[in-house]
Design a protein around this nucleic acid. Structure first.
Length: 519
RNA sequence: GGCCCUAUCGUCUAACGGUCAGGACACCAGAUUUUCAAUCUGGUAAUCAGGGUUCGAUUCCCUGUAGGGUCACCA
């Protein structure tokens, strides 16, 4: 005889509803489910909770899966893709999905119906014919006298005959669960410890609009049981749903999963992040040029810590170090500054090739270049053709300076413009007089025109030699740099000159000289 | 309002009941530098309050305070 419980396979799920873009908090929920499953060599499932037919849209479902793909959060199993889904999802996503389509609640109505009927037959659920107006008034009243605003059970003991009669008449109704009275429902939250509720605060809650239209709390527990989910890891806002789900689980004789409720991600006002203020959907962060690695690293550290002082983690390293008991109980403010820093770290880590290809869409969108053929681009304004290698040189100059991919366009715009537009005063380093500026620019022009091998090192050597005579590098380099970029801050002038090429460099210095002459 | 949860630098967080309360971001100063970054060095900055328990409390208990979540025929 063995008393040791058989090791249950770890199975988690991410269960979003396709009613909008993926929320940053949902990504963290997905990530933690993923990390926990991978860490324990278990399964990670995706379940689309689209029981709300009004609000659920296929477009959101597609976008949601694309976001998950972007983050690299792959799920393990699912039904076979239908022909309709292949059309809806598009080639790219179909290729990506392979055989792992997500579970969709809208396709599982027959399952819920079966269990719903079971509860009704057993007298554990009943039809309620109360009107919305009636219920609203009741709720108002209960709250005004400080009682929990729960259903008072008017239809609870309606006779079977009467209910059937109403049903036949086509009277509007819902299905309520007959919540056991005077019952303490407690569960052991893996993050928070024991949490207890009194069943009186639950009331006879609605579990379905009708047999064909079950509601969240019901579909959720049926699916979790059917899919043999071992750990339900979800946001803190679900704590109050848990006792409802537990009484349903018991009524249906299912096995209770383990629960872990994640602390919320808060905005700067310490409130639950909402769409109203700030960016909450991941698509916005993607568009702004945050990298998946950076976002994953950042989000993981929001409410979880490795127990060491390490800050940088790849997703595989997170899997290796992840554990639920290192998760924080209190909500965490989304700290954009730290995300920016982390993104910079990952941007600097990227190979130049990868970074450049990540920047290209932004450069094209800004109208700087257009793709001509494989590696060939055309600068839109000058019609000049450049190879990808050259674009890599441009990007390289700013690899250490960008925090987000969007920033690349304003940083490098001067490489793509025919004419630079800047005020004359910008050419002055400290208190330089007009004459000093002109002299400085002429000196740079002379030095550069004398140079044969136009490499940054050579340019620097020649320039520094001249600067020594003047005794001040700034008065030579600043005007030169501004003449090439039209900006008060940028990468170094020698590197820029090399990238620009001798001809353009000279053109721009000459232009600056003309500006000094007020021409 | 009822119920539930939470509380360490501005923010994310570390600290078997014994640490000088540690790290990271941000900020400030210095080094480097033509500028802006990057980089390096240093610095400012916290245990919500009051009671217990204990030789000793950030840590355990109670009360208060503050903040958050939730109270749908949404999920």
């Amino acid at each position: 005889m063995t008393t040791k419980k058989e090791e249950k396979r770890i199975r988690t799920r991410f269960a979003p509803s396709p009613t909008g873009p993926l929320h940053i908090g949902s990504v963290r929920t997905a990530l933690f489910n993923y990390l926990f499953a991978r860490k324990n060599r278990g399964d990670f499932l995706l379940r689309i909770e689209d029981t709300d037919k009004e609000r659920s849209k296929k477009e959101w479902e597609v976008q949601l899966m694309e976001s998950l793909e972007w983050f690299g959060l792959n799920w393990d199993e699912g039904p076979i893709l239908s022909d309709q889904q292949k059309i809806d999802f598009g080639n790219h996503l179909v290729n990506y999905l392979g055989s792992h389509a997500p579970y969709r609640q809208s396709e599982r109505t027959y399952i819920y119906k079966k269990y719903l009927q079971q509860l009704i037959d057993a007298g554990q659920a009943y039809f309620c014919f109360c009107t919305k107006e009636e219920l609203d008034a009741q709720k108002q009243y209960l709250m005004s006298i400080g009682e929990p605003p729960v259903y008072q059970g008017k239809c609870r003991d309606l006779s079977k005959g009467k209910a059937e009669e109403y049903l036949r008449e086509g009277k509007k109704c819902v299905i309520r669960f007959k919540t056991p009275e005077n019952l303490k429902i407690s569960f052991n939250d893996l993050i928070r410890g024991k949490i207890e509720f009194d069943s009186s605060v639950l009331g006879d809650f609605v579990i379905a609009k009708d047999l064909e239209n079950p509601l969240y709390n019901f579909t959720c527990i049926v699916d979790d049981a059917e899919m043999e989910i071992s750990h339900v890891i979800r946001g803190e806002e679900h704590v109050s749903n848990t006792p409802k789900q537990i009484v349903l689980i018991r009524a249906l004789g299912f096995e209770e999963p383990a629960y872990a409720h994640l602390p919320l991600i808060l905005n700067a006002q310490k409130k639950k992040m909402s769409k109203r203020e700030g960016k909450t959907s991941v698509t916005e962060y993607i568009e702004e040029g945050y990298l998946a690695e950076a976002l994953v690293n950042f989000i993981a550290l929001l409410g979880w810590n490795p127990g060491t002082e390490r800050e940088i983690f790849s997703i595989d390293e997170l899997i290796a170090d992840f554990s639920l008991n290192k998760i924080q109980k209190a909500g965490a403010v989304f700290n954009l500054e730290k995300l920016n820093w982390l993104n910079g770290v990952y941007l600097r880590k990227k190979s130049l090739k990868d970074l450049t290809s990540a920047c290209l869409p932004y450069l094209e969108k800004a109208g700087f270049v257009e793709n001509v053929s494989l590696d060939l681009y055309r600068i839109k304004e000058t019609k000049e053709e450049v190879f990808i290698d050259w674009l890599e040189k441009v990007v390289f100059l700013y690899q250490e300076r960008i925090k987000k991919l969007t920033e690349i366009t304003e940083l490098v715009d001067y490489f793509f413009k025919k004419e630079l537009d800047y005020p004359k005063e910008l050419l002055a380093w400290k208190q330089m007089s007009d004459k000093e500026i002109s002299d400085s620019l002429n000196a740079s022009l002379r030095i550069i025109s004398d140079l044969d091998d136009f490499k940054a090192d050579n340019i620097q050597e020649a320039l520094f030699k001249e600067a020594e005579k003047i005794g001040d590098r700034g008065s030579l380099l600043w005007p030169l740099r501004v003449s090439l970029t039209g900006k008060k801050s940028s990468a170094g002038p020698m590197e820029i000159a090399e990238t620009l090429g001798k001809e353009k460099t000279m053109e721009r210095i000459k232009k600056a000289i003309r500006i000094m002459k007020n021409e």
